[in-house]
């Protein structure tokens, strides 16, 4: 039983981290209509930034600043934000589907640079030399994982509250106004370009937070953590959960990650060894079918966006 609890703590930690990233994407896609095809890059910027700033000195790559953890994590988020700002300024004025392609390509470049720039990121072998905060006090067993889960849950909830407030604020109304009808918003004297950039950067900073937590959890990050698969997984979580609905985003993250891991578990249990080579492919086909199926039959997701009528002063959640 302790084993199951220990595993569930582990599972919930990863699901919560992914849920934070999904919330970031929800701000961009669900509320603002920005197709970010490069989630992995912002997640990765947070992960690499946190480890570089908070890690111990390594002979073969940059790092060794050994900043306090909170500062390092904030630095990781800032790294994601800066990357988003640069990408946003360059690409947000494009056609909306060009944005998808550009961000997708940008994430490939990010992975590629991390893989090659050994002086910066340790190259393909990854970035190590990071000590998890408070490890001396808590050890690295169950107590640590439980404490870390608590921190992640607090941050997930804080992110969720922040976004709920943001979405209901005048700024949130403006986001939806631009998403629905950009010309009308512009005619009211609003600057869609600037608003979109703000939403894009904010969402990316949230993804950076998720990335920073992810890297902390493993005390390691390598280019394999920022492959396009991650972008796809986060998108699947949002689409299935319900774009535009923050609860949907969190729910989708838990559901998809549970399905992803449970299907691997079930296949290992019940599929014959000879069939094991196919399990990865089958899993991807299933996930692809779920996504296409959702878009066809329930495009609003399991928990659809609810129209917010701000004037009525509806109480939050």
């Amino acid at each position: 039983m302790t084993g199951i609890i220990s595993y569930l703590v582990f599972f919930t930690t990863m699901a919560s981290i992914l849920a934070i990233a999904t919330l970031g994407l929800n701000l961009q896609w669900g509320n603002t209509g920005l197709f970010n095809g490069g989630v992995a890059a912002f997640f990765g910027a947070g992960a690499y930034g946190t480890l570089l700033l908070g890690g111990t000195s390594q002979e073969d790559h940059l790092g060794g600043f050994e900043l306090p953890y909170v500062v390092a994590l904030a630095g990781g988020m800032a790294a994601a934000g800066i990357l988003a700002w640069v990408v946003g300024v360059l690409t947000l004025r494009m056609r909306r589907d060009y944005l998808a392609i550009s961000t997708f390509g940008m994430a490939i470049v990010f992975e590629n640079v991390m893989r090659n720039a050994e002086w910066l990121s340790g190259g393909a072998k990854g970035l190590r030399g990071f000590e998890r905060p408070l490890r001396d006090a808590l050890g690295d067993g169950f107590a640590y994982n439980a404490a870390f889960l608590a921190v992640v849950l607090v941050l997930l909830f804080a992110t969720y509250r922040f976004l709920q407030v943001l979405v209901r604020s005048p700024f949130g109304r403006l986001l939806r106004a631009i998403r629905e009808d950009e010309t009308a918003a512009r005619s009211l004297g609003k600057s869609p370009a600037r608003v979109r950039l703000t939403a894009f950067v904010t969402g990316s900073v949230i993804m950076g937070l998720a990335g920073g937590l992810y890297a902390t959890f493993y005390a390691f990050v390598s280019p394999q953590d920022v492959l396009p698969t991650l972008t796809f997984q986060i998108w699947a979580m949002l689409i299935v959960g319900g774009a535009g609905n923050n609860r949907g985003a969190v729910f989708g993250a838990f559901l998809i990650w549970a399905a992803w891991t449970a299907s691997g578990w079930l296949l290992s249990r019940f599929a014959p060894v000879d069939a094991q080579i196919y399990t990865g492919s089958i899993q991807y086909v299933l996930i692809g079918l779920v996504i296409v199926g959702m878009l066809l039959w329930r495009p609003q997701g399991l928990l659809p966006e609810r129209l917010v009528i701000s004037q009525s002063g509806q109480a939050p959640s």
């Binding site: 199951i4 492959l227 691997g264």
Partner: peptide, 22 residues
């Protein structure tokens, strides 16, 4: 008990954790 890592670190780590804990 064989688990597919899919060359995805988080999938592999989750699988290892399940093997160890469960």
């Amino acid at each position: 008990v064989l688990r597919d890592s899919q060359v995805d670190p988080k999938v592999g780590v989750d699988a290892a954790k399940a093997l160890v804990d469960i």
